[in-house]
Design a binder for these strands. Structure first.
Length: 124
DNA sequence: AGCGTGACAAGGT
DNA sequence: GACCTTGCCACGC
């Protein structure tokens, strides 16, 4: 049995599938999308796939940001403004140059997770 | 085959 | 925070 190697096409599909599953009003990072697609350390591949993806696919690409919350596009560029607009339409607002990932990040039960962390309990 | 490039990430200064 | 360096992966020339 040979080593399992996914074709670029299969990788694209895996990535696109994950992108489609990001809920409205949520954001996530390129690296996280890659990881969820079973392609750890392939953040740049995600950007590449999104860039090449046809607009007709109508992917929610605007929900994907850099790991630090900044948009991947140059501030003020046409794409930057479009992404900002589409995010705003979903209630995701930029704080300065970045999105508040702690608040809008793609995660379940944020409150429960945060308040269950030992670090928070210790400081109370 | 080597090298530059990019819708990236993490760590350091 | 703004940069810079390294590591990373796929492509194109």
């Amino acid at each position: 049995m040979s080593i399992m190697q996914s074709s670029t096409e299969q990788r694209q599909q895996a990535i696109i599938s994950v992108v489609r599953s990001i809920p409205s009003g949520c954001v996530t990072s390129y690296g996280e999308v890659a990881a969820r697609a079973g392609l750890p350390r392939c953040a740049r591949l995600v950007g590449r796939v999104l860039r090449e993806a046809s607009d007709s696919l109508k992917l929610p690409w605007h929900r994907i940001l850099r790991a630090d919350g900044r948009l991947a596009f140059a501030v003020g560029s046409r794409e930057f403004l479009l992404q900002k607009r589409r995010l705003a339409k979903e209630g995701v607002v930029l704080m300065g140059a970045r999105v508040d990932v702690a608040r809008h990040g793609w995660h379940r039960d944020l409150d429960a997770e945060l308040w269950a962390l030992p670090v928070h309990r210790a400081r109370l």
